[in-house]
């Protein structure tokens, strides 16, 4: 079973998260499963759901921030087993939620592959929020987790320079997509899908997220792999794919994001890892050396 891409959508109350999700549904080119991680405030457009009965929309109440966090994991587990399967999951965080917590669920729950963490920012109000009496640290924390920022309401902001400067300072590595009415295509919020050139960077790295492929020649040594993964720089956003671990007859599925990773037994799968990063990520020879170091000695 191919893991389902999962896009966490965070951002402060009023930034336009729900508008973005509605836009993605209205322009759907695939079967989306949507979870709304908020209490009692579901504003996903019912007409869109009705119009796209090819796409699955599942709504839950539950807040991953607090003690009922298990509900969202349960919602994801249900999405993963939908029949017919969904192509892509979107999880809308609550307006005060930490999008990283949702991303973490995608590592913990089997069957998902974590796409970029999208944080919607309000071009009109961002500066005020970042200086706000009660909300500044919440808004800042959301942006620190961003891998793509959707700077929304750009048409309403008389002078968006301040918002741009704040983003450049808080999340300098995250590409910023400026928009109005949260009208952003899913393609701009996904990691690139590329053919599989081996041992070299994807030449199409004009994209914000360069991709590099690695084919492990032998199984990994567990301790060395742990050391290599723990030492990866922040410019490496994801490592995912299949590998073999010392002594395991079966392949393992590896998913790495933000210094955390899950390695789970997978059965039969040809080895191969995809490494996705920012333009600042290490050059291919450096990456080859790092991952080769994790291989079992011959």
């Amino acid at each position: 079973m191919t893991p389902i891409p999962l896009t966490p959508v965070g951002g402060f109350l009023g930034a336009g998260k729900t508008t973005l999700v509605n836009h993605l549904l209205a322009t759907a080119d695939r079967r989306f499963g949507v979870l709304v991680n908020d209490f009692g405030a579901i504003a996903i457009d019912a007409a869109l759901i009705a119009a796209h009965d090819g796409g699955v929309v599942s709504l839950t109440n539950g807040c991953v921030c607090c003690e009922t966090g298990g509900d969202l994991g349960a919602g994801l587990a249900q999405l993963a087993t939908r029949d017919p399967p969904i192509d892509h999951a979107i999880v809308e965080a609550s307006g005060v939620g930490d999008p990283w917590r949702i991303a973490q669920l995608a590592l913990v729950e089997p069957g998902f592959s974590l796409d970029p963490i999208v944080v919607v920012a309000d071009a009109l109000n961002l500066e005020r929020q970042l200086a706000g009496r009660w909300v500044a640290d919440t808004v800042r924390g959301q942006l620190l987790a961003a891998e793509i920022v959707v700077l929304n309401k750009i048409d309403l902001a008389p002078d968006p320079a301040g918002a741009r400067a704040a983003l450049a300072s808080l999340c300098p590595m995250a590409p910023v997509v400026e928009t109005r009415n949260a009208a952003v295509a899913i393609g701009r919020l996904s990691f690139p899908v590329s053919p599989r050139p081996r041992f070299r960077a994807n030449p199409a790295s004009a994209h914000a997220f360069p991709v590099w492929h690695y084919l492990p020649a032998r199984p990994f040594d567990r301790a060395r792999l742990r050391a290599v993964l723990a030492a990866l720089p922040r410019s490496i956003l994801r490592v995912k794919g299949f590998c073999r671990l010392d002594g395991d007859p079966a392949a393992s599925l590896l998913q790495f994001a933000a210094g955390q990773w899950a390695l789970s037994p997978y059965g039969e799968a040809p080895p191969g890892l995809v490494v996705i990063g920012t333009p600042e990520m290490p050059a291919p020879p450096d990456l080859v050396a790092r991952f080769d170091f994790a291989l079992l000695e011959q």
């Binding site: 921030c65 509900d71 917590r101 913990v108 955390q260 899950a262």
Partner: peptide
């Protein structure tokens, strides 16, 4: 082999079975 927030380990790197936070507890 995994390294997830909330999986507590001992000095030898083995999981102690202590789970912290909503993701792994859930």
């Amino acid at each position: 082999d995994s390294n997830l927030d909330g999986l507590v380990r001992d000095e030898g790197g083995q999981l102690t079975g202590e789970l912290r936070g909503p993701a792994v507890m859930g």
